[in-house]
Nucleic acid binder design. Structure first.
Lengths: 344, 344
DNA sequence: TTGAAAGCGCTACCAT
DNA sequence: ATGGTAGCGCTTTCAA
């Protein structure tokens, strides 16, 4: 039956105290070598498995950190998680992951789970539905440090590793302008997520800096659902004065836009140029290969983990640290208009 | 300030016993409504957060299950995890995830973590390095039920939800033969993973059934690393008698092969047809769109979760249940050599 | 070097 | 309806 082996069983079997067993198991030098060997052997023989519940309860430390991500859909989180795991492992921490599935409700539940398990720290990327921070504030009461990565909550002053989305968007738009485009549209995610808010502002400011008037029809703030993206693209191409370039501000919107334009027989980049904000390697494989703003994915995860480690070690209440990394422009076919069809 | 609030604190504050607080918090009907209200209010005011460590230790049940996946790279696991979460949530279970990163060592560590946390059950997909089951056997000693999904260990008789890879591969090859190909190559993963073993056998048996002799040069068993796949493709195209079709048995190999063939200027499907085994939606977007064998991804996760629930409820030691789902052939451009362009 | 015992936060049994 | 208390499995003083 479910009577799992405890140190008590080992103690009983060897006729020694549980204190000694505990010490032996932990490799304490304050226990006779012979005894230690016997304990180890018996533990192995009985298939002893330490109970982290009891251990963590007693020690009030779990040596485990939790990660919350919105979904695994994008390559981005896969790589970031690997980076976090690698880094935390160096410091002896375990990592458990929860997936919010882009649902606020699930995210709250995930955080509850992690909090109730008393993880030592949390690294999170908020869901696209999330626009309040109440659940994250609960962590403060438990003294569980928190680091956001990639997606943060603008109003909540927490530590975070992000990409300079404002700058990234500006770079993208500047590239489109220099490639001869003037009527540039953006398909963005919800502005309650700081990353999209920033990307929209980078877009707007870059146009302004180039003395290109803003056109509200060209700015599509969506919830990133497939339908919303389809609607945005449909609307853009059916405008009286359609854009000559589209900047898509996340993975899905990039590839859906590409598929739709192709389906409609719209030539890329001749009729409409496309620049995406993504780290999906497939940007390179599709046809035409898509020009993208790429994030330093592994670096983000690594830095987030290192920041958390720092917070974990300095158990004082430090003020939030925010680090912004630069994203890089990778020029591919989707934004290089053939000279023959160049417009004025 | 790091002394987190416990039911004891609530009891003290209200001058009642901790038993009553515990009952009130659990919404027991054996406690006065007024008291209950007071307890709730105080709990909220003090920012009480239940301690799952203590609770689970006491109850010897965690209401949490663990998932181990090799990596998030593929869309497959994202969807499967969503399915598992959805299903487990219906039954009141939390889900925590570990990523083995395709590393045997990490997988062992992950399992250790889950076991020490005494999760009620585990759903796992083994890493490509894994070829022994010792760590999974440890779960038996703790009476933690286990369900494999997608990738299983052939020699370990555990419950599993898999796809009928043998049949899927056969379908792919039959399609290639019927499309006029005779010299069909396969780029597969390591045969120690049952899924690849099965795909190779489906390939071989289908050729035999069609009286096409096997050619060892056409069978590439790789470790799925990028380099190994590159080597395989290079070797195939440089054969004296190169294949007229390639069946790639996983996601990466499919897209890498596509990219390489295109780079070499080899026409797909005219010179070499391509069929991949994948659930990546991008198979549809790339050029040419790739014919694939698609797995019922959500269904796999859902069934794995339901099977685990079943094992959890019937606390008897049941014999392993294995369910195989069928994969579907989706014909796209990469395998249609004539001018007719079919789409699903 | 070893053991006894308290206690981490909680539930559940047994009283009252 | 409420309280007292044992104990889940473990670590860690304090004694011996």
């Amino acid at each position: 039956m479910s009577t799992s082996i405890t140190i008590k069983d080992i103690a009983k079997q060897l006729n020694i105290s549980i204190s000694t067993v505990s010490r032996a198991l932990k490799g304490s030098h304050r226990v006779n070598a012979t005894t230690k060997a016997k304990v180890m052997k018996t533990a192995k023989a009985l298939n002893y498995q330490p109970n982290a519940l009891a251990l963590n309860l007693r020690k009030r430390k779990t040596n485990t950190i939790g990660i919350i991500i919105p979904g695994f859909i994008v390559q981005f989180y896969s790589t970031a998680i690997s980076a976090i795991q690698d880094t935390m492992a160096l410091h002896g921490y375990n990592v458990i992951i929860c997936q919010s599935n882009e649902s606020y409700k699930t995210e709250v539940k995930n955080l509850q789970t992690l909090a109730s398990y008393r993880v030592d720290g949390v690294i999170a990327s908020v869901s696209k539905e999330t626009n309040n921070d109440e659940h994250y504030r609960q962590l403060e009461h438990l003294d569980i440090p928190l680091v956001f990565f990639n997606r943060t909550l603008p109003q909540f002053n927490a530590s975070a590793i992000t990409v300079d989305d404002y700058d990234g968007a500006k770079t993208a738009i500047q590239h489109l302008i220099e490639s001869g485009n003037q009527k540039i549209a953006i398909i963005s995610g919800p502005a309650n997520l700081e990353i999209y808010n920033n990307r929209i502002h980078g877009y707007m400011d870059c146009l302004k800096n180039n003395n290109i008037p803003l056109n509200d029809n060209y700015i599509k703030e969506t919830d990133l659902s497939v339908q919303a993206i389809i609607d945005a693209v449909e609307n853009l191409v059916s405008l009286e004065n359609p854009p000559d370039a589209i900047f898509t501000a996340n993975d899905d919107s990039t590839f859906i836009t590409l598929a739709l334009l192709k389906e409609k027989g719209i030539k890329i980049p001749e009729e409409i140029s496309l620049v995406g904000y993504t780290s999906e390697p497939k940007a390179e494989y599709v046809s035409p290969a898509i020009t993208t703003i790429e994030q330093p994915t592994y670096e983000i995860g690594k830095l987030a983990a290192e920041l958390l480690i720092h917070l974990l070690k300095s158990n004082s209440n430090q003020s939030a640290q925010i680090k912004k990394l630069k994203a890089n422009l990778v020029v591919r076919d989707s934004s290089v208009k053939n000279n023959l069809v160049q417009k004025n």
